[in-house]
Amino acid sequence: MAALVAVPLLASAAGVGKGILLVGIPYAAFAIFLGGLCWRVVGWARSPVPFRIPTTCGQQTSLPWIKSAPLDNPSTGLGAVGRMALEVLLFRSLFRNNRAEIYDQRYVFGDSKWLWLGALAFHWSLLVILLRHLRLFVQPVPAFVLFMGKVDSFFQIGAPALYLSNVVVLCALAYLLLRRLWDLRLRYISQFSDYFALLLLLGTALTGVLMRYGTRVDVVAVKRLAIGLATFQPVVPDGVGIVFLIHLLMVSALAAYFPFSKLVHMGGVFLSPTRNLANNSRMKRHVNPWNYPVKTHTYAEWEEEFRDKLLMAEIPLDEAKHD
């Protein structure tokens, strides 16, 4: 008798639980992500940029016959956009991390670009992977997504074909993590949140890879879920599997954690006043919205104080103020 009541109850409870896990949490996480990110960006944007303080990394624009560095020290808005593009797309500043080793009286450059390479590899492959996921959310799958998948699996290793971006992202993450553990200086400065973010990303990537090449998941079910989520008509499919569930929860955790952690650097980089401003402060006045009057020592006060000395030294006094 009791069993007759308990079984349907448990089943419906399980159904509700599954709904929370597959629909509720992703929605909540995504809402926190969007809301939080907006809150952060608006927060930054609300603080003004009182002074024009670009870090100049090349020759200024001055005399017409001196070659300036339009991207490293832009004097126009367009140049600043170019500088930002180099920064955001190619990590220009990290690339600058060079060294001059001297072997046999000559300089050998390079060899110090590992951080640049690791960071670039990680961010770009992450972007490719995110875009590739569109094939789960959109029906029909956009042509560029299919094309990207083809290029990504160009080498046709194994079946299903190995995505290069998966290999790259795992290697890059492993490098970034090992570097933090290996380099004493970095270990000294690293905080819990640094490891947490890396481990979360690593876990997400590993479960994703596992689903593709190891424990196969029911892609049709996952796609039903994804499209349901994307179109706000959520369905709770059966048989998505435990690995998928972990993957989804980790992504949700990452999204919800994002705005409150150092991961917001993604949004912040665009607002950095040392990078996104043109170095034209002597060409065009930059206005500080909170510029307030201050106490100065005026010429009249100064002249009054040093009148005798000025007269003695025959330095002309101000006629306007002097009879």
Partner: peptide
Amino acid sequence: RSFKLFMDVCVRCG
């Protein structure tokens, strides 16, 4: 904005 942003965005990349 510089101060606020620089308080938030460091990733301690080294």
